[in-house]
Design a protein around this nucleic acid. Structure first.
Lengths: 128, 128
DNA sequence: AATATAATTGACTTTTACGTAAGAGTTTTC
DNA sequence: GAAAACTCTTACGTAAAAGTCAATTATATT
């Protein structure tokens, strides 16, 4: 595994712009180290980028993605803090399960659309 | 089932604003009939609103939601048209399956977070 | 009839998540 | 060593999806 990635390497790998990566840094989602002014992204940043993009695909805002990523980093803390995280995890889970149900429902409806199209096509072949 | 719903009834049911419903009308997603100037939404509009909100939860843009909804309405058409719809359905399916995988991955990671928190809490109880 | 309550259109504003352009420095490649 | 490629910061611009406000107009209630 590489020690560092340049910004352009990552823009190519993930098909995003430099602006986007700098924006994510401004938002505190990634923290590349610097050699002079130049950003050097570590493997851990690369993982974070994957998580960010996954969150985006699911329609989460940057703020929500930040919340999720914060959970991942949390462990050491006192009981109250830990319980808050557990609550946060549970509420994200509820949200994700809803999204999953939404997906299943949509997939089922798309199946119906396809069936209707296939039937219509079959009819066309017979009728013609 | 009611014949019509007023805009306020629907804003209450779905917890959205009148502005949002008018915006959806401007975007051609719903087509309430009018009594004078007042909008009257039919049960079919209500179903459309559910589909729109479901699409939003999944992170689809209004344009994408419109595309999906168009598929639902499509059946009668000639072969070329029908095949295009089938292609559209298939590509949406690919996208939805990706989202579903993203959800599973995120859920698994959240499980890990919870486990870590629980372990830490157990340690705290022993250590103290 | 008077007063809420609900509805309308239109226009301007806001937030999010970047895009884009300017101007300058650095590193690579030929 | 000059051009090409890459990087930086700063700053203004933009598209999407509403929010908000104003000025009217209906409808309903008391």
């Amino acid at each position: 595994m590489k020690d560092f990635y340049t910004i352009t390497e990552l823009t190519r790998e993930f098909d995003i712009s430099t602006r986007t990566l700098r924006f994510y840094e401004d938002e505190g989602l990634v923290k590349p180290v610097r050699r002079g002014r130049t950003r050097l992204f570590r493997p851990s940043d690369r993982v974070l980028i994957k998580q960010i993009l996954r969150g985006k695909r699911l329609g989460f805002s940057i703020a929500e993605i930040r919340d999720i990523i914060e959970m991942y980093k949390s462990p050491p803390g006192e009981a109250g803090q830990l319980n808050k995280i557990i609550d946060g995890v549970e509420s994200k889970r509820v949200e994700l399960r809803q999204k999953r149900k939404d997906i299943e429902d949509t997939l089922a409806e798309l199946d119906q659309v396809e069936d209707a199209c296939m039937n219509r096509l079959a009819e066309l072949r017979v009728t013609s």
